[in-house]
């Protein structure tokens, strides 16, 4: 299975990064990590490569321009990915799960199946 993981640097997305790289190491799926942080922070890319290396994966790491939600949906569809994975939301001070606008966009607009990582 070809898996596309979106990472924007939020805690939820980093949690998803660690879980997915671990999981893919076990399943042998093909992973592409798409980084979209708007500003081009090299820190985030280093963090992604570190997770990929730790799991000893041969994953593709690439940058997406613009809004993470729509960019992810476009790439997943135009390049025929089987599964889109994004972080499953942040917690408010109260502990309520809050889905970001990007996650909402992905859930409502993706034709590809989506996995939210808690």
């Amino acid at each position: 299975m070809e898996v596309l993981l979106g990472v924007d640097g939020t805690d939820g997305s980093l949690r998803a990064l660690d879980r997915v790289t671990e999981r893919v190491a076990a399943t042998g799926d093909e992973l592409t990590v798409a980084i979209a942080d708007g500003g081009g922070e090299t820190d985030l890319e280093a963090r992604v490569r570190e997770a990929v290396d730790r799991a000893d994966l041969d994953a593709t790491v690439r940058r997406l321009d613009g809004d993470l939600g729509s960019a992810l949906v476009n790439v997943a569809e135009s390049e025929g990915f089987d599964r889109l994975v994004v972080g499953g939301g942040e917690r408010s001070p109260m502990g309520k799960i809050e889905l970001s606008q990007e996650t909402q966009f992905v859930l409502l607009n993706a034709e590809t199946s989506v996995t939210l990582v808690r």
Binding site: R91, S92, M94, G95, K96, I97, E98
Partner: peptide
């Protein structure tokens, strides 16, 4: 607590 009354993941 009735699970149907949970909201946004709380109460757990």
């Amino acid at each position: 607590f009735d699970p149907a009354d949970r909201a946004q993941g709380i109460p757990p």
